[in-house]
Amino acid sequence: MLNDKSHFHGSDLEKVEAIYNINKYDIINFSGNVNPLGVSKNLLELLSKNVNVIGMYPDREYTKLRKQLSKYIGVNYESIIVGNGSTELISIFINIIKPDKAIIVGPTYSEYEREITIGGGSTEYYPLREELDFKLDIEDLKTNLTDDTDLLVICNPNNPTSTSIDNKDIKTILEYCKEKNIYVMIDETYIEFTNEMEKITSVGLTESYDNLFITRGVSKFYASPGLRLGYGICGNQEIMKKINDLKNPWTINSLASFAGEVMFDDTEYIAETKQFIDNERNRIYDILKDFNDIKVFSPTANFILIKILTDNINSHELFEILIKKNMMIRDASTFRFLDNRFFRFCFMKKDQNNLLLDELSKIFK
């Protein structure tokens, strides 16, 4: 039985399996935010044919991988660094700049605060406001970026709100932060899921702003969390040199490096994913926004945040009901600024989404 102090993340299937006696392979994981199309068939085929690369050390500079990424995102490969998931790069970047005080735009992913705290820094949160549908008020944010602020952290699109900030607004933030000698770290984990990615991504701004560091990975869009492949983009070559000097060599294994060299060129998979997510995002939002007992926040990523408006049920109880039907949503009450009226789920395959929608329709009017 789930109590109010027990919460599960998308990667906690083993815990859920043990507590609820449900085979983890039978659980539809609406909490994981991973591409429901799974790993590209093209990638799987190429990996199986090239498994012998595990017999070789990877290039410690990962030059071929970085050049493929350069082609994929449109910046010089010397402005790209790869790591063992984006978490490694976030940790190293924070370790290098050593912020005494960081501002984190929240509610958001908890790892940012953890890494800052480990590094000896303090964190304050700038809250996205529900009355603005969790969209960022840039002018108000500026008033919170005081002279003792060293780092601003933004997740774009943001988890769990699924809201995005246009790069025109990011540029305004960067200009202000540059004047105040504030570094800006932007996590673009979910950027590929957005409908108008070119209007949201800040990658191009790294060429003009040396106070910007961007992180990305392959866990979500490419459905490959087990590869532990992440990459960072930064135009500040002094920062990049420090990261390379501090980073351990060969943190990406040969299979992950090879996978990265081919997955970013898989245009058919990329297009199929974008179209599928866009269709399901619009369909699900259009259905749920007509429910009276919930408030649905317009999503831009591959997941949606929902607020429960009725007193008849809370997010803990909803989790309990659904997990017993082998559907795992995210109880969002553990996110800062949210409570047990909020839950989040990602878009899975259409028939799976329909199962969840059907159950929600029985609970909410």
Rank of each mutant, 00 (worst) to 15 (best):
2 L>F: 11
2 L>I: 15
4 D>N: 14
29 N>R: 04
29 N>Y: 01
36 P>Q: 02
47 L>I: 15
49 K>C: 01
50 N>A: 08
56 M>Y: 14
59 D>Y: 08
63 T>W: 10
66 R>N: 01
68 Q>F: 09
71 K>N: 14
81 I>H: 09
96 I>Y: 06
96 I>L: 03
98 K>M: 13
101 K>N: 15
104 I>H: 01
112 Y>N: 11
115 E>K: 06
132 L>Y: 15
132 L>Q: 12
134 F>K: 03
134 F>D: 09
137 D>P: 04
139 E>R: 10
141 L>H: 05
147 D>V: 12
154 I>Y: 10
159 N>Q: 06
171 K>A: 10
176 Y>H: 12
178 K>N: 14
193 F>Q: 09
194 T>F: 09
195 N>W: 04
197 M>I: 15
213 F>T: 08
213 F>N: 02
213 F>I: 08
217 G>I: 02
219 S>P: 09
224 S>P: 13
225 P>F: 08
229 L>M: 14
231 Y>K: 02
231 Y>P: 07
234 C>Q: 08
238 E>P: 00
249 P>E: 08
249 P>Y: 04
258 F>G: 06
263 M>W: 07
265 D>P: 01
265 D>M: 13
267 T>P: 00
269 Y>N: 06
274 K>P: 11
275 Q>S: 15
276 F>H: 11
279 N>H: 10
280 E>S: 13
280 E>N: 12
280 E>L: 11
287 I>Y: 10
290 D>P: 02
291 F>S: 14
295 K>D: 12
300 T>I: 08
307 K>I: 04
311 D>G: 01
316 H>V: 04
325 K>P: 01
330 R>M: 03
331 D>Q: 01
340 N>G: 03
341 R>T: 13
345 F>Q: 01
350 K>C: 05
351 D>K: 12
352 Q>E: 15
361 S>Y: 00
362 K>E: 13
364 F>R: 04
